[in-house]
Design a protein around this nucleic acid. Structure first.
Lengths: 201, 201
DNA sequence: TGCTAATTAGTCGTAAGTAT
DNA sequence: ATACTTACGACTAATTAGCA
């Protein structure tokens, strides 16, 4: 007798698009023709550099945000919540696989790629109310050049090892996030310093 | 343990609520928008780490509170009384089954998981009047997590060294076990998290 | 081709339900 | 109340599909 059976069979249907803030929608051109959601699923969201910067910062702070935090973040990056959730999932997966590693001072090290420095308000009270990008309205004019590529570790020798490259046997995957060292102090005070909920189990 | 022959489809239509006031708003899952209770199937309440901390503390003090105490607790944790009652029931059941064990100094030992230290006012007069969460003024209305969380949260990426205690000392019957697994986390690190598929046979 | 975002299916924990 | 079951919510991979 096989005990491993799945009793739950229909979970595939519950998410409905609940777009919140209008933003780029890739399927602007072709849509709504007789198509329903099931058909047009997957329109790849393009996440821009500035958005990534924020995402990295948030992820560094807490790789497992709660629902509430997701909503907050999704406002900051101006992307649907679902997209943010998925991004976090995939990032977690990637980290677990050892494809990326977060270094304490705000650096993301990917395997055969340049380091990415995400300079996001790490020092500021993170879950606050205002978006990190203070109004730089504009489209196209980047302002803060979020990502700084410091290509120090290109690719030593990368033969074609196909996908899974095991980077190196360094410290176990454990990241150091969570209170990082210096933290750059400050912040403190300011009243509400929500400790970010911790997501609990 | 899996298969169940009791097929009772869904007869759950009677949910009524007479809650008092503290309603958790995190039913975000099903957008609390136009849904009525009739449409809602059971929505699972998520109990956060801070709330768990309190619950553990209360449970440790007295696993069988009276009605009045339940009300008090439900205010502290900001959850409907019914939820608290159910939580206590489930916790009692879990303890009985040997899935968890409370250690005297405020530690909850679960089976395949790191110890949880619930540091709740164990020293304070527990059934007092003042909730741990000062009803405060939340400026802004967003949950501000006023609780001073000192507990170690069940952290997914803890560098735990597998401190898991030896769980079941004596299985009463032979049908126990369902898994165990340490899951959670990264640590396991590279190595696979074997976990057997169970099922076996 | 490579990336990676989305999808999907499986598992797990446990709150809520049912029966006793 | 207890004992057992059911199913929700969250997570994890593995796969699928899009853009560069």
């Amino acid at each position: 007798m096989r005990a491993a059976e799945k009793m739950n069979a229909s979970l595939l249907e519950k998410e409905r698009e609940k777009d919140q803030g209008g933003e780029q929608d890739s399927h602007g051109g072709r849509k709504a023709k007789g198509k329903r959601y099931r058909d047009m699923r997957r329109s790849r969201t393009i996440i821009h550099a500035e958005q990534l910067d924020i995402l990295y910062g948030c992820y560094f702070k807490d790789p497992n945000p709660g629902k509430h935090e997701f909503e907050q973040i999704s406002e900051w990056v101006q992307l649907p919540k679902k997209v943010v959730q998925i991004w976090f999932q995939n990032m977690r997966a990637r980290e677990r696989k050892g494809e990326v590693r977060f270094i304490s001072d705000g650096t993301l090290a990917a395997v055969g790629k340049p380091l990415i420095k995400f300079t996001w308000p790490l020092a500021k009270p993170i879950f606050s109310k205002k978006p990190p990008t203070p109004s730089n309205n504009n489209t196209g004019g980047i302002a803060a050049a979020p990502i700084v590529r410091t290509m120090i570790k290109p690719d030593p020798d990368a033969p074609i090892v196909r996908t899974m490259i095991k980077p190196d046997p360094d410290p176990p995957v454990s990241l150091i996030n969570k209170n990082g060292t210096g933290h750059s102090g400050s912040s403190a005070g300011t009243g509400a310093t929500p400790q970010t909920a911790t997501t609990s189990s």
